[in-house]
Design a protein around this nucleic acid. Sequence first.
DNA 1: CGGAATCCGCGCAGATACTG
DNA 2: CAGTATCTGCGCGGATTCCG
Lengths: 131, 131
Amino acid sequence: MGSDNGDGNNPAQCRVREVLDLVADKWSLYTVSYLGDGPRRFTELKRGIDGISQRMLTVTLRGLERDGILIRTVYQVMPPHVAYELTPMGKSLLPATAPLIEWTSQHLARIDQAREEYDKRSLAQPLAVAR
Amino acid sequence: MGSDNGDGNNPAQCRVREVLDLVADKWSLYTVSYLGDGPRRFTELKRGIDGISQRMLTVTLRGLERDGILIRTVYQVMPPHVAYELTPMGKSLLPATAPLIEWTSQHLARIDQAREEYDKRSLAQPLAVAR
DNA sequence: CGGAATCCGCGCAGATACTG
DNA sequence: CAGTATCTGCGCGGATTCCG
């Protein structure tokens, strides 16, 4: 991984980055992982994914639907009922995102610590120099 | 995975998302994976990560350094020489990001296909309805 | 309930110019 | 070579309102 980057600027790498930009943003990652347990309704997602606005939830869900990662099902009743669930491709994404989410939660403390030290150093010395 | 989200809005989830937002953006993911093979210099990274501007590379590298994911070593010579390499924590991040990058490159074609179909459908019918 | 539409601020990120 | 500094714009995303 990474060792296949010997070729400088190639279009394939650019495409990967483009899709990565969509699938690997905070909201998409969290939404997909949240749908891992099964279908959810709009309001469930909004309440479950904390900090997301209904606008960003809508935008995120539309993007994931467009990419074929989830499907949106509308039941024509009153009050409206809309269910979101992962497609097979979406489910295949789960084991790819899980390690990253797990890593993040496991390294929260160490990252906080590293930040504090970095900020302290930045105040003391303007630049760290090797000899 | 995801099943631990039964509790609606909790501060821990918010923190995970916060760090995720930093570590899981396109530039950081690609930079870390690119450093997986060993130390690289600034210009090597700029040429290797296609589409990145020197400003975004600098910003990304600073953020990763601050989080303790890579270390920056300056050799005081002319011309200047700066090396970036992953810390142990940075290396532990590699196996967490690799699956996502691999998944993305493997599903590029199917995502493109899904988008085309979605865009075609959107033009035909204003809304898909379940019965 | 599950959005769509609109308004709007501010922060991300590109472009350019300059330095040790 | 490896940045920093400054300016700028435009798009992300929050808040609010309205609708089927």
